[in-house]
Amino acid sequence: MLQINEVMNLTIFRNFRLIAGKNGLNREITNVDILEYEWFNDGFEVFNKGDFIITSLFFAKDNQELIEKSFIRLIEKKISGIAIKTIFFKELPPEILKMADDNQIPLFLFSSAYMEDIIIAVNELLKSKQKYLLFEEKIYDLIDRSNSREKIASSAHEINPHFKNNVITFYLTFYDKTVSPREITNYLNRLFYKQYRGTDLSNISLVKYKEGLMIFYTFTDNEKCDNDIHLCKRILRYFDIPLDLFCTGISNSHKTFTQLDISIQESIYADKVCYIKQKKYLYYSGLDIYSYLIPLMKERSIQTQVDIMINILLEYDKKYTSSLLKTLLAYVKNNGEISKTAAELFQHPNTIRYRLQKVKDLLAPYLDEKNFYEYIFIFMNLYLLKVE
């Protein structure tokens, strides 16, 4: 589904002016339709929930009261928004604006765009959104199942039939986790309306995956390719996407049509560790000890044990309004140094020692106290690799 605020990022909507109903900008659009004289007389039966309505209000040019009548019927139909071309009305009566505000129906005025072009632009965007979802499902399928090499090659061709023999995958997620994941979709939407639409970029694909953006860069056996952050920067600069907003995980180079699943997984893991280590980018080849921890994520018995220990800590924190889990995260981040952990949490070192002893007591059945930090390092990082 598309939200109105996503559609408003398209170039054709640049000069639309929102005059009421701003609290409804997250409404979803399922279709775009035109309200003109024939549909007004036909009782509005053609309109459905989620329709975004475009109109010139031609039917009301000689009788302004018909505006209110039409709005009442459209709101009854649970339409998502209304855009009025200012041919006959430059402004709308206050009672209409209040009606839009009260019902949280975004109401826009525009003057220059053609209605048919608006419909085409939104329909293209709807199709693009469906394509994003399809490709995202392909990625889920590639990394969550055991696929044959033939199945992987088939999925690669579906994502982009023009892919070349070799691939490097970049996975980008917002460094600031408070940024809405929908921003990724907004970036992708804008790409369809840039001047490079006709340029041959068949060796590159940009695909939404979860809260991030996945970039596949493919090249032939004879081409020299520098597998580094500078390649990613060049791609993002070309697409006018600001790199500094993201953590970036970079895979090794692989064969596209037989190892795409490996390339994807490497970029995702590198991105996870990138965020854990608070870096802007990280190569899969540079994961160090994390390259040994990552395979443990697939061991069900180990993950079950991690879940049990996390739940013990969470239940204690909730019951006693404590911060044991937060303390452990800081403890590992600061390489087991109590003084640095205390400084980060604005606590006395003895408070940190008390909390760590409480953790030892609670988790005694699962941890060897002699190697407490090593166990905590492993189990907290497995927790972070899972939740990030």
Rank of each mutant, 00 (worst) to 15 (best):
I54E: 02
T321N: 15
D240G: 01
I4P: 08
Q305H: 11
N15D: 15
S70K: 10
I84V: 15
G50Y: 05
F59K: 02
D288L: 13
L382H: 06
Y320E: 05
E299S: 10
I118M: 07
A156W: 04
L362K: 01
H157N: 10
N381K: 05
W39N: 08
P106G: 00
F216D: 02
K177Q: 14
D226F: 12
I338E: 02
Y269S: 12
Y269E: 14
T351D: 00
Y217A: 09
E95G: 03
L260D: 04
M380Y: 10
T86L: 03
I310Q: 07
P161R: 03
S80E: 10
I105E: 00
M297F: 13
Y275S: 07
A121C: 04
R17W: 08
Y37Q: 09
Q265A: 09
W39M: 12
Y175P: 00
C232R: 01
S128P: 00
K333Y: 13
E223C: 01
K90G: 14
L66Y: 09
L382I: 04
Q305E: 15
N350I: 10
L172W: 00
F47V: 06
L324Q: 07
F257R: 10
K279D: 12
S56Q: 05
D221A: 03
E344R: 08
R145S: 06
T30Q: 09
L287Y: 12
V179N: 04
D51L: 04
K127L: 13
H162F: 15
Y290C: 07
S291M: 13
F170W: 04
E68Y: 13
P106L: 00
T86G: 00
I294V: 12
M8W: 14
Y187K: 01
M309P: 09
V359I: 07
K22F: 02
I120D: 05
I152A: 08
R237C: 10
I352T: 15
R14A: 15
N371I: 07
G249T: 02
H348R: 13
A364K: 11
P365N: 03
N350L: 11
N15L: 08
V273T: 06
L125A: 00
N9M: 04
N189D: 04
P161I: 02
K233D: 08
S154T: 14
K358I: 03
T321D: 13
E36Y: 12
I19G: 08
K298R: 13
K208M: 06
N381I: 02
K98T: 15
D33I: 06
G24D: 09
D200M: 09
G336H: 03
P242W: 12
M214G: 00
T327F: 02
S301W: 08
I67A: 03
K272S: 07
N48A: 12
I29A: 00
E68R: 03
N26F: 10
I152F: 04
T220E: 12
I82H: 11
L362D: 02
D317A: 11
L345E: 05
L107F: 05
I312H: 12
N203C: 02
V122K: 01
Q64Y: 08
L243G: 12
D62V: 08
R300P: 12
L345N: 02
I143D: 03
L2M: 07
K272G: 02
E45A: 05
I289N: 14
K49A: 03
T30M: 02
N311K: 14
H348W: 11
K61G: 14
S128Q: 11
L10Q: 10
L66R: 14
Y275Q: 10
S155A: 04
R197S: 07
I168V: 15
E388T: 15
E315L: 15
E65N: 14
K280N: 14
D176H: 01
Q265E: 13
